[in-house]
């Protein structure tokens, strides 16, 4: 099949970018979307033009590296699918396909379709963990966790950190991403000791990164390749409200005896 691509090209973070029209010829409908780009890149290279830069790694839908807003939808038209698992059979012969990077101030473009998502790492560093040293924790089965809680926590834990929620949101808000981690740990007993400080710190960091605000349109949920529910955002809101009243400002440490 043949397709006409409209691709965002931008040399580096400082350069000005623009949409460029590139023809994709003789594409197998069984190839994945990224394999289509590979094929197009080979053609570009043979013509002496620089290939299109895009993020990808595992190509099996789990690492979260691949991105791309395809015809206005993050990860393309298929529900619950990452770009790397999207196949060309989802498109029509002769179709025009717009390919753009995630658009957010907090995700600056590095090149073409590649963006910098370190803001997500910094949000996790603000509190997305359980403070436990490596050593000799108690036997794993000393901490029974009700199956339904474990399952619910898991539903949030499947987040791959791709950023589609931000890309889909009209306000470029990462609430679903932040909520997934907050919710996972709020549901598990291991997360309880830092329950309040975690949600406050992560929300605070989210604001500092320059993301937008949630307006409950749920585009994130619809775009999420892992189908994470906005119910987790509600849980984060509850957690935040609760923590706002409970959490006191941290006191200065003392050195002991």
């Amino acid at each position: 099949m043949d397709v006409t691509l409209h691709v965002w090209r931008q040399k580096n973070a400082k350069a000005k970018g623009a949409m460029e029209v590139i023809e994709g010829k003789d594409i197998s409908e069984h190839s994945s979307f990224l394999e289509m780009l590979d094929t197009v890149n080979e053609t570009l290279l043979s013509k002496g033009q620089e290939p299109i830069a895009f993020d990808h790694d595992c190509r099996e839908g789990i690492c979260g590296a691949c991105s791309l807003v395809i015809n206005g939808e993050p990860h393309g038209p298929e529900y619950g699918t990452t770009t790397c698992q999207l196949h060309m059979r989802s498109f029509k012969n002769g179709q025009h396909i717009f390919i753009e990077p995630w658009r957010a101030k907090a995700f600056p473009v590095i090149r073409d379709l590649v963006v910098d998502r370190e803001a997500f790492d910094r949000i996790q560093q603000a509190g997305g963990f359980v403070s436990v040293n490596v050593g000799s924790p108690q036997d794993a089965n000393c901490l029974p966790i009700a199956k339904q809680d474990a399952d619910k926590a898991f539903d949030a834990a499947v987040c791959i950190g791709c950023g589609a929620c931000v890309a889909a949101c009209k306000n470029a808000s990462p609430m679903l991403f932040v909520a997934a981690k907050v919710s996972q740990l709020a549901l598990l007993p291991q997360g309880q000791p830092e329950r309040e400080s975690r949600v406050l710190a992560m929300v605070d960091q989210m604001k500092k990164e320059g993301f937008g605000n949630c307006s409950n349109q749920y585009e994130c949920e619809a775009a999420c390749p892992k189908e994470i529910s906005v119910e987790h955002i509600a849980r984060m809101n509850r957690e935040y409200l609760r923590a706002s009243f409970l959490e006191e400002a941290p006191k200065a440490g003392h050195g002991g005896d």
């Binding site: 436990v132 009700a146 199956k147 834990a157």
Partner: peptide, 22 residues
């Protein structure tokens, strides 16, 4: 054996049966 203990302490959501055990 320590690995499982460590991971559970970190909040890794391993599959559990209805009694809440791994």
């Amino acid at each position: 054996r320590n690995i499982i203990d460590q991971c559970v302490a970190q909040g890794v959501p391993f599959a559990r049966d209805y009694g809440g055990l791994l």
